[in-house]
Amino acid sequence: MNDKLAPRVVETERLVLRQFSPADHADYSRFCADPDVMRYVGTGQANPPEITWRSMAGMLGHWAMRGYGIWAVQLRDGPLVGHTGFIDVPGWPGFELAWLLGREHWGQGYAREAATAALRVAHDALQRDRVISMIRPPNAPSIKLAKAMGAVQEGEVEMLGAPALLFVHPRHQ
């Protein structure tokens, strides 16, 4: 286990990044059941509520085992909008920064705000020199976001049976 720990809560101007709770299940299940939201995530399949529950439990388990993981992202004094954070499991191509938003929250800058805050945690609190994001080639909005955050495409990898572009996020100055 990494001896560095991430903060359990991170606040930005408009958002709160925090651990998932059972109360998030209904909204998160709605996001994960949307084929447009899920088409580039994992295997590209929408998830039923019971799989989404297991996913939330897995994210909490990642926190317990690693001391960092995926945060639920909510508006300050508002609803859940998605998730961001880290995937760092055996057999994965690297320490990955990931993000997902419910469709009604697209195009408002939330993904960039949340992912940028998470990247700061990766570099500052977790002292990670190499942070990657794996993005399916047709996912133009996520490619645009990764590039806007300064990430550079380093190649292509296989992710869960399909190709993904590998982006590397440089340390901020």
Rank of each mutant, 00 (worst) to 15 (best):
Ala118Trp: 01
Gln74Ile: 01
His62Val: 04
Ala115Lys: 00
Tyr68Gly: 00
Ala6Val: 06
Val131His: 00
Ala164Pro: 03
Arg54Ile: 06
Gln153Met: 02
Leu166Ile: 13
Glu50Arg: 03
Arg171Ser: 05
Glu154Thr: 09
Leu119Ser: 09
Ala122Gly: 09
Leu160Asn: 08
Gly155Leu: 01
Trp63Val: 03
Glu11Ser: 11
Ala64Phe: 06
Phe86Cys: 00
Gly102Asn: 02
Ala115Arg: 01
Ala23Leu: 13
Trp106Gln: 03
Ala162Gln: 13
Leu119Ala: 12
Ile70Ala: 03
Trp53Arg: 02
Gln19Thr: 14
Leu80Lys: 00
Arg120Thr: 14
Ala125Met: 13
Leu160Phe: 08
Lys144Leu: 05
Thr43Ser: 04
Pro93Phe: 03
Gln108Lys: 10
Val121Asn: 05
Gln19Glu: 15
Ile143Thr: 15
Glu158His: 13
Val152Tyr: 10
Gly91Tyr: 10
Lys147Leu: 12
Val89Phe: 08
Tyr40Met: 05
Lys144Asn: 11
Gln108Ile: 07
Met1Thr: 14
Ser29Ile: 04
Phe167Tyr: 13
Leu119Gln: 08
Gln173Val: 15
Ala23Met: 12
Arg14Asn: 01
Ala151Phe: 06
Arg128Ser: 06
Leu17Arg: 01
Val73His: 03
Met149Ala: 14
Ala72Val: 03
Ile70His: 02
Met159Phe: 13
Ala140Tyr: 11
Gly155Thr: 02
Gly85Trp: 04
Val89Arg: 14
Trp71Glu: 04
Arg39Tyr: 06
Leu60Lys: 13
Thr116Asp: 15
Gly102Val: 02
Trp92Glu: 11
Glu11Pro: 06
Lys147Pro: 09
Tyr68Cys: 01
Ala57Phe: 11
Gly61Met: 07
Ala151Val: 09
Met65Ile: 09
Leu165Cys: 08
Ser21His: 14
Glu158Gly: 14
Leu60His: 12
Leu166Lys: 04
Trp106Met: 04
Leu165Glu: 01
Lys4Leu: 12
Cys32Tyr: 03
Val16Asp: 02
Ala115Thr: 04
Val37Glu: 05
Thr116Pro: 15
Glu96Pro: 00
Phe95Cys: 03
Phe20Glu: 02
Ala125Thr: 13
Ile143Ser: 13
Arg18Gly: 05
Lys147Thr: 06
Gly58Arg: 10
Ala114Val: 01
Leu101Cys: 14
His172Arg: 15
Asn2Phe: 14
Pro48Trp: 01
Ser142Leu: 07
Ala146Arg: 02
Glu104Ile: 13
Pro79Leu: 08
Trp92Gln: 12
Ala148Leu: 15
Leu60Ala: 13
His169Arg: 02
Arg8Phe: 13
Arg14Ser: 00
Arg30Gly: 09
Ser133Pro: 01
Arg120Gln: 15
Ala146Ser: 09
Ala6Asp: 04
Arg76Cys: 08
His62Ser: 04
Pro138Thr: 08
Glu104Val: 14
Gly82Ala: 05
Arg14Leu: 00
Ala114Tyr: 00
Arg54Pro: 03
Lys144Val: 10
Pro93Arg: 06
Glu96Asn: 02
Ala57Cys: 10
Pro35Ser: 08
Ala57Glu: 11
Met159Lys: 12
Trp99Val: 02
Arg14Asp: 03
Val152Cys: 10
Gly150Trp: 10
Met38Lys: 10
Ile51Val: 14
Pro93Ala: 05
